[in-house]
Nucleic acid binder design. Structure first.
Length: 474
RNA sequence: GGCCAGUUGGUGAAGUGGCUUAACACACUGCCCUUUCACGGCAGCAUUCACGAGUUCGAAUCUCGUACUGGUCACCA
C-alpha cells in the first residue's frame, strides 16, 4: 500500500510551497487508496512556537488534507513529533556503531569549523578527516562513559558510487568519496535531519518519500543509511521548487509567509489549492478546474515537472475570482461582509442596501479584501477624481452641460428608483444630443470620481438622492 | 571551487523524431455585446523552443560541448 508523509519543520510558518508539497504527498497516497501521515520535524530547536503548530493544523484542516496518522491521531507508529522520539534515534545510532557502520567522535566542533572556514577561503572543499574513525571501540566506549562530549558519525564508504532512480528526476549518481562522515547524533543527544528522517520514514512504513528537490544531491546519504540500517529503500519523489517573485530559496526561508496573508486577504482555500496543484504538475488535457476530490482521481505523479515554477499571483486571482463567482449568494455575502465591516461603519445602512452593494461586485472581485477598496465610492464623503477622469471631463465642452442638466432634473425626482433615474438620464441625453459613453461617463465621473464601477443607474440608486446631489453640487 | 539538477513567450505550461508554419490558460492589446461600467464573446500576441555543434531524409524532441540559473558540500531542516 502506498504511504506518504508530510513532514514540515517547526522553524517557520507553513507557506505555499509547504502546502503544495503536502498536497502532492496527499494526492500520491490517496490516488492509490493509500495513507497520508503527518510528522513534525523539530529536532533543531529546544522548543517551538505553538502558533506555528496551530497554524499548521489549521491549514491542513481548512484545505481538507486529512492525515490518517500523526499528532492528535496517534497510531502504533507514534509518537509523531521527533522531539519525543529521541531515544529511538539513539537506539538505532548505537546499533549502527555496534555493527561498525558508525562511530563515536570526540573532535572539537570549533576546531573543525575553523578548518572548514580556512578551506573555504582557499576555495578547497573540506571533509571531516576521520580522526576518530578508527579508534579502538573499547577506548571510545570508555571516553563515552567517562562523560566526554561526543557525536555519532556514520562511516561513509570511501570508494564506489551510490545511485538511485528518482521518480521525477530519473537516475542520479554520486561518487561516495565526496561524502563526509555525516553526523547522526549531535552532542546534545538530538539526531540530525538526515538521520531522524530516514529512521522515521522507515519505521513508519513510508513507501514514497516526497520532498523538495533541494534534497536531490543529498539523497545518497539517506540511501546509504537505509542500507546500513537494513531498511528497504523507499521510492523517492522529488518535487520541483516554487519560486516567488524576487525570492530565491534562501531568503524565502527567512520569513516570507504568503499563505497566512493570502487567507487573510480573502483568497478561498479551494482556489489556492486548485492553483497550487498546477504549480509543478499538469494534467493530460487542458482542464484547469479541479476540486480536491477531482484531483485525487486525475493526479498522475508521472506528470510532475522537473523545472521550478514561478508563482504568479495574477493567475491565483483569476482562480479565486472564478470560485467567488460560483459561490451561492448567501455564502458570498457571509464571506465578503466581514471585509466591509472591518473598514466602514455600517450604522444606519439597511441590510437590504448592504446586500445590494455587495452583490454588485460578485462577478468582479478577485479576493475579499478588494471589497473595501472597490466600494469606496459608497462611503467616502468627498470624492477624489482620478487623473484620467479629469482629462475626460475636460475633453468636451458639452460635458458640463450634461452634468448640470442631470443635477437639475434629478433634484426634482420624486420616485428614487432605477427606472426613473434611467429615464432622467435618457432625457438629459436627448436634450444635449449625447449618447453612449458621452452621456453616461460624465455623470459617472461626477458622481463617483472614477471611470470604472458598477452599473451607473444601480449605483446612483444605491448612493441615494442626498449623496448624489451633494456630489453634483459645487 | 567540487558535485547535482534545471533551461519552450511576461507567467503557468502542452509537446517524448514527421499530425507543430509550437496546444491550452493567466496577463496584455484590439474588436463585438451593453446608450455607461463590468460580466461575457471573438481576435492578436514565441518564423521558434538558452547557445553552438553533431546524429537523421527530418529535432523543441536523441548525443556532445558552452553559457546561464538554482541547489548542495553544517552538531539547519
Amino acid at each position: 500500500m502506498t504511504k506518504t508523509r508530510f513532514s514540515p519543520n517547526t522553524s517557520g510558518f507553513m507557506d505555499i510551497e509547504d502546502l503544495r508539497n503536502a498536497l502532492f504527498a496527499y494526492l500520491i497516497a490517496k490516488q492509490d487508496n493509500g495513507e497520508f501521515l503527518l510528522r513534525i520535524e523539530d529536532t533543531n530547536q529546544n522548543g517551538y512556537s505553538m502558533d506555528v503548530l496551530e497554524f499548521l493544523f489549521h491549514i491542513l484542516d481548512t484545505f481538507h488534507l486529512t492525515y490518517d496518522e500523526g499528532p492528535k491521531k496517534e497510531k502504533e507508529n507514534g509518537p509523531y513529533i521527533q522531539s519525543k522520539r529521541l531515544d529511538i534515534y539513539k537506539k538505532y545510532a548505537e546499533k549502527l556503531v555496534k555493527r561498525g557502520y558508525a562511530y563515536y567522535c570526540f573532535c572539537d566542533e570549533a576546531t573543525l569549523n575553523k578548518k572548514r572556514l580556512d578551506a573555504t577561503d582557499k576555495k578547497e572543499s573540506f571533509k571531516y578527516d576521520g580522526t576518530c574513525r578508527n579508534f579502538p571501540k573499547d577506548e571510545a566506549l570508555r571516553r563515552v562513559t567517562a562523560g566526554e562530549s561526543y557525536v555519532i558519525r556514520e562511516k561513509m564508504p570511501e570508494v564506489g558510487q551510490t545511485s538511485y532512480r528518482d521518480f521525477v528526476y530519473g537516475d542520479v549518481t554520486v561518487e561516495n568519496n565526496i561524502l563526509e562522515d555525516q553526523i547522526l547524533i549531535k552532542s546534545n543527544g538530538r539526531p540530525t535531519y538526515n538521520f531522524a528522517n530516514v529512521v522515521d520514514d522507515a519505521l513508519m512504513g513510508i513507501t514514497h518519500v516526497t520532498r523538495e528537490c533541494v534534497f536531490l544531491a543529498t539523497t545518497n546519504k539517506s540511501l546509504l543509511l537505509y542500507d546500513a540500517l537494513g531498511f528497504q529503500r523507499p521510492e523517492f519523489i522529488h518535487l520541483p521548487l516554487i519560486l516567488t517573485k524576487n525570492s530565491t530559496k534562501r531568503n524565502k526561508r527567512k520569513n516570507e509567509n504568503n499563505l497566512m496573508d493570502l487567507l487573510n486577504q480573502g483568497f478561498l482555500p479551494e482556489a489556492i489549492l486548485n492553483y497550487l496543484a498546477l504549480l509543478g504538475w499538469s494534467p493530460k488535457d487542458t482542464r484547469e478546474f479541479f476540486t480536491l476530490e477531482e484531483l485525487i482521481h486525475n493526479f498522475d505523479s508521472k506528470r510532475i515537472h522537473t523545472r521550478p515554477a514561478q508563482y504568479d499571483i495574477k493567475k491565483l486571482e483569476w482562480f479565486n475570482r472564478h470560485y467567488i463567482k460560483e459561490m451561492k449568494e448567501a455564502n458570498y455575502l457571509k464571506f465578503v461582509r466581514p471585509f466591509l465591516e472591518a473598514t466602514y461603519n455600517l450604522e444606519g445602512k439597511t441590510e437590504e442596501w448592504i446586500k445590494k452593494v455587495l452583490l454588485l461586485y460578485k462577478n468582479n472581485i478577485c479576493f475579499g479584501a478588494e471589497i473595501p477598496l472597490i466600494t469606496h465610492m459608497f462611503f467616502q464623503n468627498t470624492i477624489d477624481f482620478e487623473d484620467k477622469a479629469v482629462t475626460f471631463l475636460n475633453s468636451d465642452a458639452n460635458i458640463k452641460n450634461i452634468v448640470l442638466q442631470f443635477r437639475k432634473e434629478i433634484k426634482h425626482l420624486e420616485i428614487w428608483k432605477e427606472e426613473t433615474i434611467k429615464e432622467v438620464i435618457e432625457q438629459v441625453g436627448k436634450k444635449w444630443n449625447a449618447m453612449g459613453k458621452m452621456l453616461y461617463m460624465p455623470i459617472r465621473i461626477a458622481v463617483s470620481g472614477v471611470m470604472h464601477g458598477p452599473n451607473l443607474v444601480t449605483m446612483i440608486e444605491l448612493l441615494g438622492k442626498d449623496t448624489v446631489l451633494k456630489r453634483l453640487g459645487e
